[in-house]
Nucleic acid binder design. Structure first.
Length: 601
RNA sequence: GAGGCUGUAGCUCAGUCGGUAGAGCAUCUGCCUUUUAAGCAGGUGGCCGCGAGUUCGAUUCUCGCCAGCCUCACCA
């Protein structure tokens, strides 16, 4: 998997990562010297507090809860073993929700809750917020990772770190653990001789998944791993649910999407994706604002859903008693702003399209749209090469990205083909067929293309598009601009001056996917009105009763929009490309899923 | 919306040519002071997705439903 490969490059995950996440470990930390010493057969303890003896006399499932007091008795007396509480650990709890930790009977959660209760009883600062790490775990690795054992020994002063316990390997009087913090892992070493009995005794309340703060000094183990020798520590937050399996992790994609918090802990590539995505967004903002673009926000709730051909989501405002649509595109609002004299504007935001779901489609998705006055679609091709080139460098460090089995090179410049050229040169159609509707029709039928696309608006344009999508698009792996689209599929784009059957438009394809769509904007209000009315007539035939002409937008054009070019770039797909993700759900933290079935309780 | 595949312990997965189920990890118990998928020993844990049908008997066969994934359609 490419994600794994990416993740493996991270410093925190450096040491011999297995093919799957390398987590979870461990024996529970059997708390060594139990007060009761050896146990009689059957696993029940006798020499414990009175209440415990009492409880132990009952079968496990009937034992009442009790309140251990051992902690108050100080270090010596406090050295109680978990066996003491075995009875309670077996209490069933009700299933709560689904997924990890739900529906257990003999329950890990009960055991963890019990430890939580004991910590409370001991008046330890659980859920406290006064622990202040001196170093993040990535800091520690960066600053001390290169140092030798001798250098680490000479360094004076201890440091404080915080993280989540990923693995626990207990040897009775010593425990190794890995803490995860800031996306990196650091081993910590609890040793009774170094911590004192009282300090070490606290480790028996430790579970995988807990957040802990630890203070100590760095050293290297026999195997050379940088490790914090803990002098003292505290449990900051208890984890009450079982963690995913340490070796295979959380593989069930449904659980990964539904419980992204677990996915983030266990699968490093998720965090990596979040970081890449953030850099992409920041990089785009910087790139455009450096060039005089102004970032704006336009309505997500719109009385008319325009700017694209998708079906909208419908909602309702109570006080105004008004039907509203979640926007399917910001286009018509951004162009109003261009008409108002904001000569360069952009918006990065969510669009909502009430269409099918697939590996490339989520009902809500993020798009960049930008408009530049006094520019043409050709200018935007240059701009797009520079933008995506820079963003790739900033987010993943170069122009080469892993993609499927291989690698993809994004180094500009990229080839530019007209749609007709691409049909011949990429799609392999005989040249003389491309302009001939009858021959195109015949070819389309021969190849069994969908007939609804062949009807509809008809004409050679729609046929060319159908053939393009079938024959050319999947082959456009390296970045390629396709220009000169038929006018009937481009209702908002400006007509080409030489050939009125096509528009001044390009789409950018990478890895067989449409990444960007741009055109010189139509700013002739008469032509625009005619095309809108044509479009609405078609929509109504398709029983899209909400289709309507946006009169206010036409008014803006009548006020006058300067000549301009505009472009939309799908952010999710760009991030997919840069992270080598096969599904859009892997780059959206909470993709839309049906709600999980709730068991009647 | 159509087709295909999948659903078994908290997690990752076997399995049952129809006789109500196993492993590893986790959890619980005992031992273990440089481990790292730690180790050794002993336990707990399952409406086998849900419902119906066939059958003496269904987790297994059939049908329906639910959820997920993949392909296609709509769409970007």
């Amino acid at each position: 998997m490419p994600e794994r490969a990416l993740a493996a490059q991270e410093p925190g995950y450096r040491h011999e990562d297995p093919p799957l996440p390398h987590l979870w470990n461990g024996e529970g930390e059997a708390g060594s010297e139990s007060e009761g010493g050896s146990r009689p057969e059957g696993g029940h303890l006798f020499r414990v507090a009175d209440s415990d003896v009492h409880a132990s006399a009952l079968p496990p499932h009937q034992r009442p809860p009790h309140e251990p007091r051992a902690w108050r008795r100080g270090a010596g007396a406090g050295r109680r073993h978990r066996a003491v509480h075995r009875g309670r650990a077996l209490r069933p709890t009700q299933g709560e929700g689904r997924g990890i930790g739900a529906g257990l009977t003999v329950d890990e959660r009960a055991a963890r809750l019990q430890r939580l209760g004991e910590l409370r009883e001991g008046r330890l600062p659980l859920y406290g917020n006064r622990f202040r790490p001196t170093h993040s775990i990535p800091d520690v690795i960066r600053d001390f990772g290169p140092r030798t054992s001798e250098e680490l020994e000479k360094a004076d002063g201890s440091l404080k770190i915080a993280g989540r316990v990923l693995t626990l390997r207990s040897f009775g009087k010593a425990i190794f653990a890995h803490l995860l913090g800031g996306g990196a892992k650091l081993q910590v070493y609890f040793r009774r001789d170094a911590m004192g009995e009282q300090g070490f005794a606290q480790t028996r309340w430790l579970d995988t998944g807990d957040w802990v703060g630890a203070e100590g000094r760095l050293f290297r183990t026999r195997t050379g791993e940088l490790t914090l020798a803990v002098e003292s520590f505290q449990i900051l937050t208890k984890c009450l649910r079982p963690m995913p399996e340490k070796w295979h992790g959380l593989a069930d994609v449904e659980l990964r999407y539904r419980q992204r918090y677990l996915d983030l802990i266990v699968n490093p590539e998720v965090r990596r994706m979040v970081e890449v995505r953030q850099k992409v967004l920041a990089g785009i903002r910087r790139f455009l604002t450096d060039r005089g673009y102004v970032e704006v926000e336009t309505p997500l709730m719109q009385p008319l859903a325009g700017g694209a051909s998708a079906r909208p989501f419908v909602t309702h405002h109570n006080t105004l008693d008004m039907r509203l649509f979640l926007r399917i595109a910001p286009e018509l609002y951004l162009k109003r702003l261009v008409a108002g004299g904001l000569e360069r504007v952009f918006e990065i935001g969510r669009n909502f399209r009430n269409e099918g779901i697939s590996t490339r489609h989520n009902p809500e998705f993020t798009m960049l749209e930008f408009y530049q006055s006094f520019a043409t679609y050709e200018d935007l091709m240059d701009l797009t090469e520079a933008l995506i080139g820079e963003v790739a460098k900033e987010s993943v460090g170069g122009h080469r990205v892993t993609f499927g089995e291989g690698e993809l090179d994004l180094t500009p410049p990229w080839p530019r083909l007209t749609l007709a050229e691409s049909l011949v040169r990429v799609g392999g159609l005989p040249e003389e067929n491309v302009g001939d509707p009858d021959r195109l029709q015949r070819l389309a039928v021969e190849r069994g293309l969908k007939l609804d696309a062949l009807e509809g608006t008809g004409g050679p344009g729609a046929l060319q598009m159908a053939l393009f999508e079938e024959l050319v698009e999947p082959k456009l792996v390296r970045p390629t601009f396709i220009t000169r689209y038929p006018i009937e599929v481009s209702p908002l784009a400006r007509r080409n001056d030489e050939d009125p059957s096509v528009v001044d438009r390009f789409e950018l394809f990478i890895a067989g996917q449409e990444i960007a769509n741009a055109f010189s904007e139509l700013n002739d209000p008469i032509d625009q009105r005619r095309r809108f009315e044509e479009q609405v007539r078609h929509r109504r035939e398709e029983e899209r009763e909400w289709a309507a002409v946006d009169e206010d937008f036409l008014t803006a054009l009548e006020i006058g929009m300067p000549p301009a070019a505009g472009e939309g770039i799908g952010i999710d797909r760009l991030v997919m490309l840069l992270t080598g993700s096969a599904s859009i759900r892997d780059v959206i933290l909470f993709p839309l899923l049906r709600p999980p079935k709730v068991d009647a309780t």
